[in-house]
């Protein structure tokens, strides 16, 4: 048989090689055409995939934004160093200048006992009670802002210790506990989103797998005919695999749109909220890497889903 095959005019090696590319291009376009010809079904499948991809992506982006916000908070942390009652304002001011020269310190704001009292009077509304005291009970405060390089937990703790060790300082306090709690909560959130992403990724696999399975069943007749006229398994598999690829890619694209629009919708309220805190914080949307990641993830999941369906269902369709 081999001999007879060689005897007949067959495509040359080069034309075969080119034809291999042709075949792939053809299958790619053909499967896209199939989707285009049943727009409603395609849109439904693509939307389901897009939502499944958009949900974890959106949550991860929100977390990233929160982390950015938290990071800003942490680096703007100050340490409050309260002087002992015996230290006079002039001595405290001198100390403030000294500390400013420390390498790990960015800036020091000195708040005299008088200022502290005035501030307290204004904020607490306990002015009458303070008037009843014959002496100012409040110490002077040094508000120490660490350098950016010092804005991480260990270095900050070191700085607090060093301040605490000064004889003039009664008590130094770093108020970052709540930031650390925020980060711990966000870590929990991130793990949760990862689990959700895993489950929804599985859902995309199953959705694509099922869609391709139905497609295979609907084209049973066609598969039988092409097998009868000598199509290889690879040839028959190809349009279905590319179908899954298109579903995934289109789903990824729509997911990008969904995430962007959703973040845009949040932008207004978030800016308003940030404004109330004197912050110019803005949500950052999906960057080029996120977009690429969504498209690649969608494509791989689509291809994977169709691969599963094709592997399970194509073999059992044979001419009889």
């Amino acid at each position: 048989m081999k001999q007879a095959r060689r005897n007949r005019t067959k495509p040359s090696v080069r034309s075969r090689f080119g034809a291999w590319g042709d075949n792939h291009a053809r299958a790619l376009l053909f499967s896209l055409g199939k989707l285009y010809r049943s727009p409603v079904a395609t849109l439904l499948t693509v939307t389901v995939i897009a939502i499944a991809l958009a949900l974890p992506t959106g949550l991860l982006l929100l977390l990233a934004n929160l982390e950015r916000l938290g990071g800003g908070l942490e680096s703007s942390t100050t340490i409050s160093a309260f002087t002992t009652q015996q230290v006079q304002d002039s001595a405290a001011a001198r100390l403030a200048r000294e500390i400013t020269d420390w390498p790990e310190v960015g800036a020091v704001e000195f708040r005299s006992r008088e200022q502290a009292l005035a501030e307290f009077r204004e904020r607490s509304g306990l002015g009458a009670a303070l008037d009843a005291l014959d002496e100012n009970p409040l110490p002077a405060v040094l508000l120490v802002t660490p350098t950016a390089a010092t804005a991480e937990p260990d270095a900050l703790a070191g700085l607090v210790e060093r301040l605490q060790a000064l004889p003039e300082v009664e008590f130094a306090q770093l108020d970052t506990l709540w930031v650390q709690r925020l980060f711990a909560i966000m870590n929990v959130g991130r793990r949760g989103v990862e689990v959700i992403a895993l489950l929804l990724g599985l859902a995309v696999l199953l959705v694509v797998g099922n869609t391709i399975r139905l497609d295979i069943q609907n084209r049973r007749e066609e598969i039988v005919v092409t097998k009868l006229i000598g199509a290889t398994d690879a040839f028959i598999r190809r349009p279905f695999l590319y179908g899954g690829l298109w579903y995934g890619l289109l789903g990824g694209g729509l997911a990008v749109l969904i995430v962007s629009v959703s973040l845009l919708a949040l932008q207004g309220p978030v800016s308003h909220l940030a404004g109330l805190y004197d912050s110019s914080f803005r949500l950052s949307g999906p960057g080029p890497l996120d977009v690429l990641g969504l498209l690649v993830a969608g494509t791989l999941l689509g291809l994977g889903g169709s691969w599963i369906a094709v592997g399970r269902h194509l073999r059992e369709i044979e001419p009889s």
């Binding site: 495509p11 034309s15 075969r16 034809a19 042709d22 007749e221 092409t226 006229i229 000598g230």
Partner: peptide, 23 residues
């Protein structure tokens, strides 16, 4: 056993497409 969603040309072309001929 013809494919009903394809033209006569495409039906007849199928064995050649399968065998990898150029357009």
């Amino acid at each position: 056993h013809l494919l009903h969603d394809r033209t006569v040309f495409d039906n007849v072309a199928l064995p050649l497409v399968i065998a990898g001929y150029r357009p």
